[in-house]
Simulated assay, not measured.
Amino acid sequence: MSTDVVAAVDIGGTKIAAGLVDDTGRVRHQIQVATPAGPAAIVEVVAELVTGLRSRAVVRAVGVGAPGVIDPAAGVVRSATDILPGWAGTPIRELLAARLGLPVAVINDVGAAAVGAARGPELRGYPEILHVSVGTGIGGALIRNGQLVSGPHAVAGAVAHLLVPVAGVIPCGCGRFDHLEAVAAGPAIAAAIAKETGSAPLPLTGAIRVPGAEAVIAAAARLLGRTLAGLVCAVDVDAVALGGGVVHGVPGFAGLVRDALHAEALAPLRTLPVLVPGAGADAPLLGAAHLARQTVAGADARHLARQTGVHP
């Protein structure tokens, strides 16, 4: 393995993944554990995972992709839904840096996935990308000229709370109604399958095998595609990238989203590429690692400037 190694962490609603990423962009020694309850426990688990990875290699920095609206400068969760109760306000960077003694960079998890996917071969020819992740929740991020667009409130590209034409009785994790995440995220699809088929509630991995589930899944995918058709009209990108557990775990889901988007979109967008990048589940780790490397490079440049008096 290259000696230039960073640790990357992807915090999700159901699992936390961590791995070593070398300078060739390969994820090594990946570990996954269930996400514990409570912010303190989550930070503790992340610190333990990184400590374990450090026994395998000299780690220069840590990059973290985390749910919620993340202030990238401070590494603090500014707001979050109840996918992770109590998560809002968590100073992730400060807590991990104190525990690990390493530079720590924190970004929204879907932003990390977008950066990781955009660096892959499938998306290199598309400078402007809308990345949408469908899993425990629904997230989005915008890439312009290879760089993540944060926006003044750090929510550029977010799609979870777009309004959709539903009955208004399904609450979103934010507490409001008629939001995309409440009807097209993994748990929402699983709940709809149980309701429509009269089957016992199951995680989506089991629910997709229930007789009658295909129609429910198709309805959710089409609703997502139609909603994204409106969004791409507003932001106008070169391509849409799809990722997340539902996209990778439910056969045909991405194709249904693509077809619905093309059917609903304005004429210039009816051939817009809708892609599932090959980075797959590794995309958040690759993006978090890239952010960690940028943090190290920035720190090195500042140190050199102090030593030489020559500022970049």
Rank of each mutant, 00 (worst) to 15 (best):
R60Y: 00
V274Y: 05
A194D: 11
G280R: 12
A265Q: 05
D178F: 07
H248S: 13
A220H: 08
L100I: 09
D300E: 15
A254C: 06
I107M: 02
V132D: 01
R270V: 01
R56G: 05
G244L: 05
K195S: 14
L123V: 06
V132N: 07
G120N: 08
A188E: 09
S2F: 00
V232R: 04
P277M: 08
V276C: 11
G280Y: 01
L266P: 01
P36T: 03
E264L: 00
D71C: 09
A17Y: 01
A279M: 05
A113C: 08
V62M: 08
E122W: 01
A154V: 07
A241C: 08
I107L: 11
V132A: 10
E122V: 14
H311A: 04
P152G: 02
G245K: 06
P39M: 13
A41D: 14
L102K: 09
R306Q: 13
D178Q: 14
L84C: 12
L272D: 10
L285I: 12
V132H: 02
K15S: 14
V134K: 05
A234Q: 06
S79V: 04
P67R: 04
R209H: 15
K195L: 15
L286F: 08
A160R: 14
A117N: 10
S55Y: 01
A260T: 03
G68M: 11
G140L: 06
P277H: 12
R26Q: 12
G65K: 03
A41G: 05
L148Y: 00
L20M: 04
L84W: 06
V246T: 15
A267V: 11
I170M: 09
V237M: 10
L224C: 09
I83C: 01
G168M: 01
A265E: 12
R258G: 02
L256G: 13
R28M: 14
S150T: 12
A219T: 13
L202F: 07
S150L: 14
R306N: 05
L291F: 04
A229F: 04
A289C: 07
G120A: 10
A156K: 08
V247Y: 06
A234I: 09
P312Q: 02
R26E: 15
P284I: 03
P91R: 11
D82T: 14
G116Y: 02
E48N: 10
P121W: 10
V296M: 08
G68V: 07
M1Q: 03
